[in-house]
Amino acid sequence: MAIDQAALGAWLADFADQIHQGADQLTDLDREIGDGDHGSNMDRGMKAVAALDPNDFASGADYLKKVGMTLVSTVGGASGPIYGTFFLRLGAAWSSVNDAPTLGLALRAGLDGIQQRGKATTGDKTLVDALSPAVEAYDKQADQGISTALAAAAGAAEAGRDATIPMVAHKGRASYLGERSAGHQDPGATSMTMLLEAAAKHLS
């Protein structure tokens, strides 16, 4: 097993911390093109996740599934089902993760789950614009090991996040603004980038 439960716990504790510290920034971004609650909703959900002890679970898979259910039950809005589905799918794929390429398959399963649930594709100005290039960048570097591949994924997520700025939103609440949604960074892509940056720091 390449990644133990303690490492998963450290990853998500760091993400919870990033979300908490960035909650105002996320909320401000969401106020521009949404309804101004992404920061507070994610903060509520990740506090509940951080309260879970990864060692209470029989396996990393069980822990990740519980993380998913916790997010579905506490975040609300679209972010709850979307982030929740990511972790549920990651958890479902976790038992076969034992090296860098199989972690890549699990991340892709998470991305596929998000796209099924939210029907978003790249270019719609959503968190898929951060996660999708991150998964691709990961796969290209997967033969270099988990650390290198995750660093590449985090870098691609950052670029993807920044690329949402000029985009016109086609999904979610920002889509109602049409052209007026251009010029603003997507809050979901911003939080997703935090998740991948934290992964690059703690998973290897």
Binding site: D35, D37, N41, V75, G76, G77, A78
Partner: peptide
Amino acid sequence: AGEIFTSPVPD
């Protein structure tokens, strides 16, 4: 009743 302007959760 969800949080303000936030849909209720499935539970």
